[in-house]
């Protein structure tokens, strides 16, 4: 049985649909990528799984869709549907069995609370560690994520740390209770390129050594190539291609995936070879139930593409393109 099974997950803010029937699964100890450009619904998917959407979501607070968030579908974690779990049950699992690392390490740490407290409060809540024991464990965690002089760092505040160190702290918080599933939402986007590699390396090590499953949310195919076992490509709130990482890079099937791969600048190509960006932007969409949402931007579009809902075809390497055979 898969550790996490997401089935037909839908999230709508007021009238606008952010996630439109996402399916994927994460097996025990597996690293799964969720890839797509900004606005495709990948972050919302992760927040929905964590149960962080209704009240705290920035999107909701800002857009004033008061209580206008509707979440449907299933997200079964070890057999239990997280979406219907009572709030208190969910609270117990968050931070303990599922944990999350966020994109912006500075704003994700509380500026007026010492690093030490921000770590020990998780240990206290989920592992019952208090006082000196909690502090020792926190220092140990900081050491494990590669922060030098951890005991001193515990007494410092987030603004006294560098960007990379802050992200290490967030990772330390996330792995504090050895969760079964770790969700990382663009954990390296806000960091310098040199730091990015270190953080990815750290995540990989932690996950490997503990057997934690990792759901990696990113727009960066490079990250996916280096880290993931399975990849799910998201477009306009739905998975358009799902395959083992190696397979996906070798034989991309959906035109969107093809486009994503082509639009990466490559040094090994002749210098005058032009880049191939995908036309238009993610706002040019059709609703999935009327046809392929990518059709307006697709180079291989035909009339077949807009004749009703395209299905996800295949098992090992699945895709959602009615023209797949013809293109290949």
């Amino acid at each position: 049985m898969a550790l996490l099974e997401v089935e037909d997950l839908r999230v709508a803010f007021g009238g606008s649909t952010a996630v439109d029937g996402v399916d994927f699964q994460v097996d025990e100890g597996q690293v799964v990528g969720l890839v797509g450009e900004s606005g495709c619904g990948k972050s919302v998917t992760s927040l929905a799984i964590m149960g962080l959407l209704p009240r705290q979501s920035k999107v909701t607070a800002r857009k004033r869709h008061r209580g206008g968030v509707t979440v449907s579908g299933r997200a079964r974690f070890e057999g239990k549907d997280l979406l219907t779990l009572p709030r208190n049950e969910m609270r117990k699992r968050r931070g303990q069995e599922l944990a999350m690392v966020f994109q912006d390490p500075l704003s994700s740490l509380n500026p007026v609370v010492r690093i030490g407290v921000q770590i020990t409060e998780v240990l206290e809540r989920h592992r019952g560690l208090r006082g000196e024991a909690a502090r020792k464990e926190a220092a140990h965690l900081l050491d494990r994520v590669g922060i030098p002089d951890p005991t001193r760092r515990l007494t410092e505040y987030p603004h006294q740390l560098s960007g990379g160190m802050r992200q290490r702290v967030l990772i330390a918080i996330a792995v504090a209770c050895a969760p079964r599933l770790l969700i990382a939402d663009e954990p390296t986007t806000a960091l310098d390129v040199t730091i990015q590699a270190q953080i990815l390396e750290l995540l990989k090590d932690l996950v490997d050594s503990e057997g934690t499953a990792l759901l990696m949310i990113t727009h960066d195919l490079g990250v996916v190539a280096g880290l993931c076992d399975e990849v799910n490509v998201l477009y306009s709130g739905r998975v358009v291609e799902s395959a083992p990482a190696r397979d996906l890079f070798a034989r991309p099937t959906h035109p969107y995936t093809v486009g994503l791969l082509k639009s990466i600048p490559r040094l090994d190509l002749p210098i005058h070879e032009p880049l191939h960006p995908i036309r238009g932007s993610i706002v040019d969409v059709i609703r999935w139930k009327d046809g392929c949402a990518f059709a307006p931007r697709c180079d291989s579009v035909t009339e077949k593409c807009v004749e009703g809902e395209p299905a996800l075809v295949g098992t090992e390497h699945a895709h959602r393109c009615v023209m797949a055979e013809e293109i290949a």
């Binding site: 962080l52 705290q56 800002r62 609270r91 699992r93 931070g95 740490l109 509380n110 609370v113 998780v122």
Partner: peptide, 23 residues
Amino acid sequence: LGEDYVRTADAKGLKAQTIRGRH
């Protein structure tokens, strides 16, 4: 309430009163 660190606190599964008070 719209800040990321409050979301982090929620993601840690902390008790409601800890989030309200400390964060």
